[in-house]
């Protein structure tokens, strides 16, 4: 049973066509890694999944609900889909604890004490329980990204989207974020990860895709993708980044 179905998704920015017909199905619990050069449409595609960008053609069905302009649908889907951004996007005027409990309290209408308990659990899970009362500005990049992961998890999402989560981090901080993501993948979460961390892809991905110029040029298991790619474009890409 696939939790996300995309059929021939197309998107234009003005005259520029960013997505030229992407189709895929993602099963529940699957970890999908999307890589590709910049401008290849990989970020645009996952942003379409929770409607931060609108696709203009084709259809996307998330957990049985089709993404249309209907506001009710969009809000339902956004509550089911967590997202982690390249630039963290934590709310700088709220403490770490408030950042995490904001959505459960206001969107899910949970009580404050339950939400805080859950938030502490999540902070423990990403390994920074001691930072709960600090402001995002007082944390390192790696810590901020882990808070962002906890914030997304606080809504109990069925799907997690990662938009280049480690690209804005110093090398020594990348590991702590990847560790948190690996732990998450092992717990059975459905994840779509846009990243250039090939080590992560090899270790936890169920499938790896390569996007180029708005099209999916290769879809493969990680072993095949790295050792025995079908497409010449993939070989070129791998030779450049490995």
């Amino acid at each position: 049973m696939s939790i996300i179905q995309a059929k021939d998704v197309k998107k234009w920015f003005g005259d520029f066509q960013a997505l030229k017909g992407i189709s895929m199905e993602i099963a529940e619990g699957e970890v999908l890694v999307i890589c590709g050069p910049s401008g290849s449409g990989k970020s645009t595609f996952i942003r379409c999944i929770n409607r931060l960008e609108q696709h203009q053609d084709g259809e996307i069905i998330v957990d049985g609900t089709e993404l249309t302009n209907d506001l009710k649908n969009i809000e339902t889907i956004r509550a089911e889909v967590g997202m982690v951004f390249q630039s963290f996007n934590l709310f700088p005027h709220l403490t770490v604890m408030q950042n995490i409990t904001l959505a459960p309290i206001w969107v899910r209408k949970k009580s404050r004490s339950d939400s805080e308990e859950k938030a502490m659990e999540l902070l423990n899970r990403v390994g920074i329980p001691e930072q709960a009362d600090k402001y995002p500005g007082q944390l390192s990049g790696g810590q901020q990204q882990r808070v962002a992961i906890a914030r997304a998890l606080a809504m109990d999402p069925k799907i997690m989207l990662f938009d280049e989560p480690t690209s804005a981090l110093d090398p020594e901080m990348i590991k702590e974020v990847l560790d948190a993501m690996k732990e998450l993948a092992k717990s059975g979460m459905t994840m779509i990860v846009v990243t250039h961390e090939m080590g992560f892809a090899k270790e936890v991905a169920d499938r790896v895709m390569l996007f180029d110029e708005g099209m999916m040029v290769e879809e493969n298991t990680p072993d095949e993708f790295f050792d025995n790619p079908k497409n010449d474009r993939t070989k070129l890409f791998l030779s450049q980044i490995l």
Partner: peptide
Amino acid sequence: PKGQYEAADAIGMS
């Protein structure tokens, strides 16, 4: 920044 709006959208706020 635009990211703040997107982050708020992404957690399903009205």
